[in-house]
Design a protein around this nucleic acid. Structure first.
Lengths: 207, 207
DNA sequence: GTCTATATTGAGATAGAC
DNA sequence: GTCTATCTCAATATAGAC
């Protein structure tokens, strides 16, 4: 509880030190990697001194884990919003993938960090389970495909194959946004790839 | 030119120091990442002392670049072998993807290193252009799809979309082999995903 | 070509004043 | 809660003998 002082002057550094450290860490971990990021540069970028970091996050690892926890919380909170849409199973799958894509684009640095950890190397960073991201996506897509099969709109083939083929398109499209100045495929290309796939998944109406 | 001495005893450390350093570097860079790998541990794993590394590779960076050059040379040499197969365009695409998959599996640590650098972070490692891997794969697949369109076996749709959809299946299947103890999809699942896609790409024979 | 020993630097983390 | 100053340790790299 700090005393409420009148703040007539404009605020010099808008977010508090804690938030600035988070932002700087996201930036540095993503661009240089965990091990290559030094606390000195990180604090300098955040405009604070080293003891401030240790005060709020206890250590470099603590700051990292705080970031990862925040990212997963964001993921889970948005997943719920993306499963409420209606339409045919194909439409719902496409809408879901597009929604995940959009959320990823709105949080590109965070997405970049997650991918760099997932496909990257530990770099001395503490372990954080990232399989749960893929697992949750698989859950949702599998459910949607299953619905399509149940309603005879999707051919009764290998559920797993269809789910993974869909996820492949989403996954590769997301990855393409991460590693290039000018991505060679975008959101609409992903949608069209899914349409191609849907054509192969559609139940042939000759029962 | 060292004097040819009779070697009656069995060799204590089969490959020479240079090769052991390469193997140890591949292992350590992959498992811990470039920045987190220390020369001390690396040399210890290779059974040599630090000056030996500096003698052969000049620096940690030099050893890293040597590894990356070797990897790309391997990639190019195998690509040529994978484009000679015959059959329908669909068969050739599937065979090509399976061949790339197989080569990747035969060189899993190297594949892991490349992916970890590509989707990972610089980690202080010198830049190495890895886009060429994807570019070359796109070249080959695009050519095969184009052939299929020319022979009226593949629908005359968006060439780029079809190419990327194929690459998505290959890419995601490869990635799945890297990050899990027990991959959830394998080579045959990839083939089946491609079949699904081919069904959506096939020209409808009603001209 | 390979060793021992060491120089040098910069990292993560903390003590203690304010 | 934030600072200055500092501790401790391990990293990269090299000198110089053999």
């Amino acid at each position: 509880m700090e005393p409420m002082t009148l703040q007539t002057e404009n605020i010099p550094t808008p977010p508090d030190a804690r938030e600035r450290l988070r932002a700087a860490a996201l930036d540095q971990f993503t661009q240089r990697g965990y091990a290559a990021t030094t606390i000195r540069e990180l604090c300098q970028a955040a405009g604070v001194t080293k003891p401030v970091l240790y005060y709020y996050f206890k250590s470099k690892e603590g700051l990292y884990l705080d970031l990862m926890d925040g990212a997963y919380a964001l993921f889970e909170s948005t997943l719920a919003e993306l499963t409420i849409y209606s339409g045919t199973p194909f439409q719902r799958i496409a809408t879901f993938c597009e929604g995940v894509f959009d959320v990823g684009m709105s949080n590109l640095p965070l997405l970049r960090l997650i991918y760099s950890i997932y496909y990257g190397t530990p770099q001395g960073a503490p372990h954080y389970d990232l399989d749960q991201y893929f697992d949750r996506l698989l859950d949702v897509i599998t459910a949607l495909v299953r619905e399509g099969i149940a309603s005879n709109q999707i051919t009764d083939g290998n559920l797993n194959d269809m789910t993974w083929a869909i996820l492949s398109c989403l996954n590769t499209t997301l990855e393409e946004q991460l590693c290039h100045q000018q991505p060679r495929i975008d959101r609409s290309a992903m949608t069209r790839m899914l349409q191609l796939l849907f054509r192969g998944m559609a139940a042939s109406h000759e029962s």
